[in-house]
Design a protein around this nucleic acid. Structure first.
Length: 873
RNA sequence: GGGCGGUUAGCUCAGUUGGUUAGAGCGUCGGUCUCACAUACCGAAGGUCACAAGUUCAACUCUUGUACCGCCCACCA
């Protein structure tokens, strides 16, 4: 079989993915007796398409899965998608907006039909994209958060929480998005700084208090004054002590409101007096709760003023109302001053609308008792975060976690399973929909309108996907799962919630290790964003460079840092690597294809030093990969494979053995086969396609490389390793001289090597054909003393001389040698200083001291030789 | 305001327990179409490891502080 000169990944990648899938290689067996290894995929949103973050995260998971499978585990990578309640709403509503419609024009039923259609049409797009990436997911277990089975889990969880008294309903201040028309959690908003003002407004006192006739408050949101129900000052603030308990007249509204004292007020900010708008500010809400103040809701869910404000403001938007209020205050002379001020404005993460904090009736999950065990398992190391620094991030949030607002005023999602009797107001929370009121038997009942936060179902993902609440075989075999790999931004939203949910419902941790991968930035250091059109598109990269190249480059760059910058050019690393492997395969294919089976026989005989040299490197590689993959050092693993294959195996080993290979030396063939097949298996988790293609081409086994086990180290001889390292030094020295002296390749130049080590000398002599092969220098002699006129190159104590047979510029050579002498002198000074240091001799490890002495000797010898040489020219 | 990262060659980044002369890829320069690969091969140039102090015989590596860049969190009216 002939291989083309360049690797063409396209047909290869489609062919083998289909082969793996058709043969059921991705499918897990819950009845297997092998130990299990399970990863549940962070379910991508049905609205999404593959971006670089997905590409990275799923590549890493795939590497772990394929690796563990080759290690002999029964692996399950469980895939699925998330209904992404609010995300999907925003997408669909955008589409509706183009037709001039809102979701309210369609109504709940119609909207849900529309959404399901949408899901059926586009929801699996990302699944197809994951296949192109090569992901070894068990597609027979594909899940969706709104599947019947998972919805049952959601309902079960809600009911259990409720029955335990952990779920309650109440009016509290929440972030409300006027566009999405729903409450959103603190984690779903983002803060943006902007230029704003600090407005100083005078609130007249009903009676003078000391020398004061009015209290001035400072605010960034003047329109909210219409909902003020108090003015607060710090209890220790001398300026206002006399005023505490007095009343002021709320301007424009003419409501009498009290002056209260509370330690939440910062004496040093503004005037030290703060207006209190309990219905629209979280701190004010707290003040009002503690001081039992009235709450007046002046802004509605749509961002407009309510009927609780004077007529002229009713129905105005927040922005228009602000202008009007300012005008009116000015007219009344109550606006004391305006200062420019940087303010932080809260936006809806999904649609970027400015969020309004307001009081509304919502469902909450009590967090205190749930958090305790979730803290404990992480503190005790039962769940481990990698990199470790994220542990603290998780714990800090968990220590201060607040109750979770789980209700959303949306339609796409799991409807809250709470039913009300319209006749007797009985509240029912049940596992199946009730037909009638359990108390008065009335059939006039209704379900709560709200749905659950999308993360409520995500929190159950590691076990709902395995069949919980049933005790399925899957759940028994694969729970707790092993690794969760995800992005840092969802540690609170998702990871934390999976942990307490798993402990609560299954009674065990959901996973043992959490790997938090890097954030990929574009060339300018900005976050990649498809909507902004910045960054690279992984599908385009697969198209242009191949999935293997995409995977390799992403893995190569993944080094547990917070983030890294990526540009398209980087994928050349992966593409070129694949091509290099391909071409090495082309070279060795004819010799390995029908190499016979007398391996055990060959193995027992003594191999060539060169073979032992590469085997030492190979053994190191096997160990290092094992060790570092267990520590999630992806970059290290990828780069060691690269270095080994390209720079050890191709650059040196293949070049060394070309003559032996062509002569079909069985020792060379044996080593070659061992290394090449082993390397393919080591690389397979990262570059599954090309490795499978070559595995099949070489017919290393009857089946897929996926089903093979990882290679084991081979017995080798370490002494030969050092010899070959020395030989390499010589060759490099020769090449060096050749380039510098501009010796033509065809030109025959006598070469002399001074080598003090007798054994090495002999060895080099036996290998002189190799030097010929590589350095293209035609004759080699070992010389005890250098000839008078010669160029020298020295590496690691070996000296290589090329006699100056009129091929170089003598002056230039003098300068070069002079320079080298200077450098050596400097280094010798440093070494001597160190060796003269008593403390160093006392404290340093003996090996270090020995090394230092050796260095001194070799440098001194070298210096003397160079000095002599310098004189002779 | 608090916490966490980062600062190493022109660029993007490694640097595994403190110990020879700090590495890679890309880019640059010079030389090669050498019978696997020009998506390649050979060679070279290029770094006072952000700054300061400390610990140590020895610091890119450990401690403290400073500066700048970035991320996250927070009740910055």
């Amino acid at each position: 079989m002939e291989l083309s000169k360049r690797y063409d990944p396209k047909p290869v990648e489609t062919k083998w993915y289909k082969f793996w899938e058709d043969n059921g290689f991705f499918r897990a067996d819950a009845k297997s007796s092998k130990p299990s290894f399970c990863i549940v995929i962070p379910p991508p949103n049905i609205t999404g398409s593959l971006h670089t973050g997905h590409a990275l995260n799923n590549t890493l998971q795939d590497i772990l899965i394929r690796w563990k499978k080759m290690q002999g585990y029964e692996v399950l990578w469980l895939p699925g998608t998330d209904h992404a309640s609010i995300g999907t709403h925003v997408q669909i509503e955008k589409a509706l907006a183009k037709e001039g419609k809102t979701r309210f024009d369609l109504g709940r039923e119609e909207f849900l039909r529309y959404a399901w259609d949408w899901k059926n049409k586009f929801g699996n797009r990302i699944v197809e994209q994951l296949k192109r990436l090569g992901c070894a997911c068990d597609w027979s277990r594909l899940r969706f958060t709104m599947d019947e089975m998972l919805s049952r889990a959601v309902r079960e969880a809600f009911v259990r929480y409720y029955e335990k008294g952990l779920i309650y309903r109440g009016s509290y201040i929440v972030n409300f998005c006027p566009r999405c028309k729903t409450a959103i959690s603190d984690l779903e908003v983002k803060h943006k700084e902007a230029d704003g003002n600090l407005w100083y407004i005078k609130y007249p006192l009903t009676e003078p208090c000391g020398d004061k006739r009015a209290i001035t408050v400072a605010t960034t949101r003047p329109e909210t004054m219409l909902g003020d129900t108090a003015v607060a000052v710090h209890p220790d603030d001398e300026r206002y002590k006399a005023c505490i308990g007095k009343m002021v007249v709320l301007p424009l509204v003419n409501r009498l409101i009290p002056i209260v004292a509370i330690d939440l007020v910062d004496k040093n900010f503004g005037t030290g007096a703060v207006k209190v708008t309990p219905a629209h500010d979280p701190v004010d809400f707290e003040i009002a709760t503690r001081k039992k103040l009235e709450m007046v809701k002046v802004i509605n869910e749509d961002g407009r003023m309510t009927d609780k404000v004077p007529k002229q403001y009713q129905g105005l938007t927040r922005e228009d109302c602000r202008k009007a209020v300012i005008e009116d205050l000015k007219a009344q002379g109550l606006l004391e001053k305006i200062e420019p001020y940087r303010i932080s404005i809260t936006h809806c993460e999904r649609c970027d609308t400015i969020v309004e904090p307001l009081v509304s009736l919502q469902w909450f999950l009590k967090m205190k008792d749930l958090a305790q065990p979730a803290i404990k398992v992480v503190e005790e190391g039962k769940i481990q975060f990698i990199p470790e620094r994220w542990t603290k991030v998780y714990l800090d949030w968990m220590y201060n976690v607040k109750d979770w607002c789980i209700s959303r005023q949306l339609w796409w999602g799991h409807r809250i399973p709470v039913f009300y009797c319209n006749d007797c107001q009985e509240v029912m929370v049940t596992r199946t929909d009730p037909k009638s009121c359990r108390r008065c038997q009335s059939t006039n009942i209704r379900q709560d309108e709200d749905i659950l936060d999308t993360w409520f179902s995500s929190a159950l993902w590691p076990f709902s996907t395995l069949g919980w609440p049933d005790q399925t075989d899957d759940l028994k075999k694969f729970y707790p799962t092993d690794v969760l790999s995800t992005a840092p931004e969802i540690i609170f939203l998702w990871v934390a919630r999976m942990i307490f949910s798993g402990l609560e419902f299954v009674g065990d941790i959901p996973f043992r290790q959490v790997y938090i991968h890097s954030i990929i930035l574009n060339e300018q250091g900005e976050r990649m964003s498809r909507s902004k059109g910045i960054g690279v598109d992984p599908l385009e990269i697969i198209e242009k460079y191949s999935a293997d190249a995409l995977r390799y480059t992403l893995t190569y760059l993944e080094s547990q840092s917070q983030s890294y910058r990526l540009r398209e050019q980087k994928f050349e690393i992966g593409r070129n690597f694949a091509n290099k492997i391909w071409n090495a395969a082309r070279l060795v294919l004819p010799y390995l294809k029908n190499s016979g089976k007398s391996q055990s026989e060959t193995q027992s005989s003594v191999l060539d030093p060169i073979d032992y040299w590469i085997l030492v490197k190979y053994n190191q590689l096997i160990d290092l990969i094992q060790e570092n993959l267990a520590k999630f050092n992806f970059s290290y693993v990828a780069s060691s494979l690269y270095r080994f294959f390209w720079h050890d195996f191709c650059d040196w080993y293949l070049e060394f053995i070309k003559p032996r290979m062509k002569a079909k030396d069985p020792k060379a063939i044996f080593t070659l086969k061992e290394i090449f097949s082993g390397f393919l298996r080591l690389l397979h988790p990262i570059m599954p396609f090309i490795t499978e293609e070559l595995w099949q081409t070489f017919q290393f086994s009857q089946s897929s490389i996926m089903l093979e086990s990882l290679p084991k180290p081979i017995l080798t001889d370490e002494r030969d390793f050092t010899k070959v390292e020395r030989l390499k030094d010589i060759i490099v020295a020769v090449r060096n001289i050749r380039t510098e002296m501009r010796v033509e390749i065809t030109q025959k130049v006598p070469l002399l090597i001074n080598c003090p080590d007798k054994i090495l000398q002999e060895f080099i002599f036996t290998q002189k054909n190799l030097i010929f092969e590589l350095a293209k220098v035609s004759s080699l002699n070992l010389a005890p003393h250098p000839p008078e006129h010669s160029s020298v190159s020295i590496l690691n104590g070996l000296e290589v001389y090329v006699p100056l047979v009129g091929i170089i510029d003598i002056e230039k050579e003098r300068r070069r040698i002079g320079q080298e002498i200077e450098e050596i002198k400097q280094e010798l000074t440093r070494i001597n200083d160190r060796l003269a240091d008593k403390n160093f001799l006392q404290n340093a490890k003996p090996a270090i001291v020995e090394k230092e002495k050796e260095r001194k000797n070799s440098f001194t010898e070298r210096l003397n030789r160079l000095k002599e040489l310098y004189k002779t020219i």
